[in-house]
Computed example of a mutant assay.
Amino acid sequence: MLADTRHARILSRVADVGEASVQDLSDWLDVSTATIRRDLAALDAQGRLLRVRGGGRAIPRPPTEAPFEEAEERPFQEVALTSHSSKGDVARRAAELVADGDIVILDIGTTTSLIARQLRGRAVTVVTASLAVLDELRDDPSVELVLLGGTLRRSYHSLVGPITEMGLQHLRATIAFVGTSGIAPDGTVLDTTVVEVPAKRAIIASAARVVLVADETKFPGTGLLSVCEPGSIHTLVASKRSDAATLSTLSDLGIEVIYA
């Protein structure tokens, strides 16, 4: 793996979880701890993270005058390029929950675009506001693809806004897959992008079964707004390395937890 690719993945990991140890990064990237230490030193020298004893930490953002301002958004392509293998595992396991003939709503995001890839060749209807999902399924005659309208968010390959939400209000899906920026220790589903939250809530209201998909970087959760309480979720598909305490809490609340 090239150093630039490794550095991008390290920065993505630290940005997602706040802090990562040398050993965690070494295991995740399958490189030596000595290589990780050199990478962290280089990124610290560039001012892109803080080198701390035993690992690396995200650089704190200065407070803004607007307390509810959205966090700076990472472009879809950057997120996709730095995604790790557990997202693919989550997507494959999630796609197994879909039966032929299902009406499936796919939220926007990198994990749901990977689910779309797994649904190629299936006799299902897919409803989405994600242009990444469109790209995955546009040439597949087996899938009936319904693209929601809305305002284009070029940076994240998606459609959002009142038109998107109104379209969802008239739908009744068999199953929906929803992404998240984080899951709080009490099971609350969070998101950092304000404009996405109303659409996520509309997806949840439109589906008979709601499946939350999350890799281990979404535990513990961070986010500006609450998307829903855990009671709105029927199933969670999560990577095996996700926070055990949060998964136990969700299971105790009656949510089906499936490990990828």
Score class of each variant (00 low, 15 high):
104 V>C: 13
24 D>H: 12
18 G>A: 07
97 L>A: 08
7 H>W: 05
201 R>L: 05
3 A>C: 03
61 R>Q: 15
255 I>A: 05
136 E>F: 01
86 S>N: 06
256 E>K: 07
241 R>V: 08
86 S>H: 09
25 L>C: 00
81 L>F: 01
75 P>T: 09
255 I>G: 08
209 R>A: 10
54 G>R: 01
66 A>M: 05
194 V>S: 13
147 L>Q: 10
42 A>F: 03
97 L>N: 12
24 D>P: 00
30 D>Y: 09
47 G>Y: 03
184 A>E: 03
213 V>Q: 10
31 V>C: 14
224 L>G: 01
108 I>N: 12
31 V>E: 13
163 I>R: 10
109 G>M: 10
97 L>D: 10
150 G>F: 01
178 V>W: 02
83 S>Q: 13
213 V>W: 05
210 V>I: 14
177 F>K: 14
49 L>H: 07
27 D>E: 15
252 D>K: 12
29 L>V: 02
216 E>H: 15
184 A>T: 02
176 A>G: 14
247 L>F: 05
20 A>H: 01
7 H>Q: 13
38 R>F: 00
15 A>C: 04
128 T>R: 12
245 A>H: 02
260 A>I: 04
129 A>H: 15
227 V>W: 06
30 D>K: 15
31 V>K: 06
6 R>E: 04
114 L>P: 01
22 V>Q: 04
158 S>I: 00
61 R>N: 10
1 M>P: 07
214 A>Q: 11
49 L>I: 04
33 T>E: 14
247 L>N: 11
143 V>F: 09
213 V>P: 04
221 G>Q: 11
32 S>G: 14
207 A>M: 08
109 G>R: 13
208 A>I: 01
254 G>D: 07
260 A>V: 04
120 R>N: 05
130 S>R: 02
227 V>K: 10
169 Q>R: 15
246 T>K: 05
191 D>T: 01
221 G>W: 05
178 V>R: 06
187 G>M: 08
221 G>P: 06
202 A>C: 09
212 L>H: 08
51 R>G: 06
143 V>S: 13
79 V>S: 10
52 V>R: 03
217 T>Q: 05
83 S>M: 11
229 E>Q: 15
202 A>V: 00
61 R>E: 15
28 W>K: 14
178 V>K: 03
166 M>R: 15
161 G>K: 00
230 P>I: 11
